[in-house]
Design a protein around this nucleic acid. Sequence first.
DNA 1: CACAACTTACTGACTAGTTAGTAAATGGGC
DNA 2: GCCCATTTACTAACTAGTCAGTAAGTTGTG
Lengths: 192, 192
Amino acid sequence: MESETTETIIRATGRSLCEYGYADLTMQRIAEASSVTTAAIHYHFDTKEELLDAFLDDLIDRFERQVDCEAADPRDRLAGFLDAVFDSEPDDEFPIALMELKAQAPFHNTYRERFRELDAALRGVVQDAVEAGIEAGHFDAVDTAEVARTVSTMINGSHVRMVALGEDPDETRRVVEDYLEAQLGWSPEGAA
Amino acid sequence: MESETTETIIRATGRSLCEYGYADLTMQRIAEASSVTTAAIHYHFDTKEELLDAFLDDLIDRFERQVDCEAADPRDRLAGFLDAVFDSEPDDEFPIALMELKAQAPFHNTYRERFRELDAALRGVVQDAVEAGIEAGHFDAVDTAEVARTVSTMINGSHVRMVALGEDPDETRRVVEDYLEAQLGWSPEGAA
DNA sequence: CACAACTTACTGACTAGTTAGTAAATGGGC
DNA sequence: GCCCATTTACTAACTAGTCAGTAAGTTGTG
């Protein structure tokens, strides 16, 4: 389904998005970043919008796969989740690219829908892990939906702070960990 | 210092920013929204960048003034703070406009600096109110800097959720209130 | 007061450059 | 020889910013 070139273009879109931002993202820059011409991009994607839809699809897919670690122990699952969310690898395009597109959501309903799905998925991962942890007696009993919503809100906040303020991911991660510790009576520190 | 016209243009910039988003914000659209020509805008602001700097200045100024309510009782001050942050008036351009510019922060150091200042101010308001509330015996003793940081992170998160997901401000406000209640042993519900 | 010199605030018309997208020509593998 | 993938060359629309001109003040001077 997905050719070599389309993937190259999609990756180049991500790099360009991080380098120039959504406002200054042009087909020309994406073309340069992917070493093809703009006409070649238009051969694979009819419009810029279609390309960005494909990019967001890919971005969210990769993110969801990364976040949903399959550890059996709910404590490891929760710790793995935090790792996936906060571990910024050197070439990491997730935070900035995600932010750029989130800011477009009010003007682009397809983006908004996808972010809603992503949010539901994220909350689901947290809620399931917390539920399992409570059942197994590892965590204190809490309103799992509420905890998941709060964690998700905090992660959104951390994300903005990383991108907009340039705050250290570790700094911002601690906020979430402290909250979980206070709520669940368990610290994810050092796990997974 | 600030003429009638410059203020009109700055307000029009805000409206245009919310209507079209940063990426599609043009001098022409701002001109239409302010009923002057683009040349008139350039008379008052040499470049688009200069105009947007002035707009952000104004936006942050208004926000800081709105947020720092002067109630004597720290409980009222905290409740007033939440009202200021979460009460979206009908013509409210704060959330979207702020978000649009926050997403530009990675590419625009002057924006980033201003958002850092705003964040410090926000945290200061919360920390001072919490400190005063503890001293007066209204709140449980907590690490005030930590609470302020967490509240600020949650507000950032709520803000994203409002703008990107279209989530109800009340929904998202509850998360912060529940956290404060759990930490301080005091509920801001119904106050101020 | 009167009148010239100057400034402020603005318009309409323009420019040079950039944008997304198109059409026709070209190459490479089966 | 045919078709998929790609390039070169192009266009029409839009971009920020400039420029010359102008009407309405403002100021200085006798």
